[in-house]
């Protein structure tokens, strides 16, 4: 089993909330993503077992939603917005800077397994561009100094 007791418990707790069981799929995928950092076929099977739903429904839904990585990523999953508002304020150079500083290409994970950098579509924080999301947290109004500081802090946390 990949999903731990706590996650399973939380997934089961979503069942009474919804009039139909299938609605629990997205919450379950989210909980699984928070635990594992990514999703995969085994997780879909586990979720469908827990919720007594068809695996095809779980897997099909998961594949539709792009927020969940479908393969392992670094401990810190850096998602940089490259949509228009952020791009107008230098998102492309932010991406280049991150890639160069971490020594990885887009989509790659650093050798220490800490960081993966990807681009994402609009994060809904356009007035504080450029913006990136690392795991569940937003980092806004980014500057070179801020990024350096963020990476340093995360490295320290390990």
């Amino acid at each position: 089993m990949i999903l731990n007791d706590e996650t399973v418990k939380k997934i089961k707790a979503t069942v009474p909330i919804y009039p139909q069981r299938r609605s629990c799929i997205l919450p379950a995928l989210t909980l699984a993503y928070w635990q594992e950092g990514h999703l995969n076929d085994d997780i879909y099977r586990e979720i469908s077992d827990i919720l007594d739903l068809k695996t095809v429904d779980v897997a099909s839904a998961a594949s539709f939603y792009t927020m969940f990585p479908k393969a392992p990523v670094g401990k810190y999953y850096i998602q940089v917005c490259h949509n228009i508002s952020c791009a107008l304020l230098g998102a492309d150079s932010l991406i280049d800077y991150l890639a160069q500083k971490l020594g990885v290409k887009l989509g790659e994970t650093t050798e220490d397994g800490l960081f993966t950098v990807v681009t994402v579509e609009c994060l809904g924080s356009c007035t504080t561009a450029p913006v990136m999301q690392i795991n569940n947290d937003y980092y806004e109004n980014l500057t070179r100094e801020k990024v350096d500081q963020i990476l340093e802090d995360l490295r320290k946390q390990g």
Binding site: Q20, R21, R22, S23, C24, I25, L26, P27, L29, T30, L53, D57, S60, A61, A62, S63, F64, Y65, T66, M67, F68, V120, E121, C122
Partner: peptide, 23 residues
Amino acid sequence: HTGGGAYICGEETALLNSLEGKP
């Protein structure tokens, strides 16, 4: 209820499908 990264879910019928656990 939280989504999973899909702009289309802002469209109301897509949102309802998503809320029902579907793509």
